[in-house]
Amino acid sequence: MKSNDVILQTATKFVLFIILAFSVYMFFNGHHEPGGGFIGGLMTASALVLLLLAYDIEMVRNILPVDFKLVTAAGLLTAVGTGLGSFLFGVPFLSQTFDYFTFPVLGELELATALLFDVGVYLVVIGVTLTIIQTIGEDQ
């Protein structure tokens, strides 16, 4: 039976980008306000899952031709790699630091090394969630 999901598909085209933008906002918000890598990653993943529901698995694969298992691995490597940095500086594992920098357009910003760790978490969450969904979705 071919279902008619024209409303879902049309809405997805708009909502997708709103969710993605909000997820990036959430991700960068995480250092001082509620947010962070986990919730940002989960939101990005949910945007992709919405795409998968509205269209099909082929569509997602065309848009994002990556193996999500590798995304997970890359995220893990990033997260652990930031910890390894502490070996270079002779401080305890997973130590973090931050400083303020001035950028041409954005003005003064705080940059923290914890953000790099969060990038790892972000990638892991996206990778894991989509791997799970794909595994179940493919097998029909």
């Binding site: 298992k69 691995a73 893990l76 490597l77 910890g83 390894l84 070996f87 594992f93």
Partner: peptide, 21 residues
């Protein structure tokens, strides 16, 4: 040598992650 204690955890963890690729 402060980080020596975590090496037994890190070695298998990093190996596992690299092998995932």
């Amino acid at each position: 040598m402060t980080n020596f204690v975590i090496l037994p955890i890190l070695i298998p963890l990093l190996t596992g992650i690299i092998l995932l690729f």
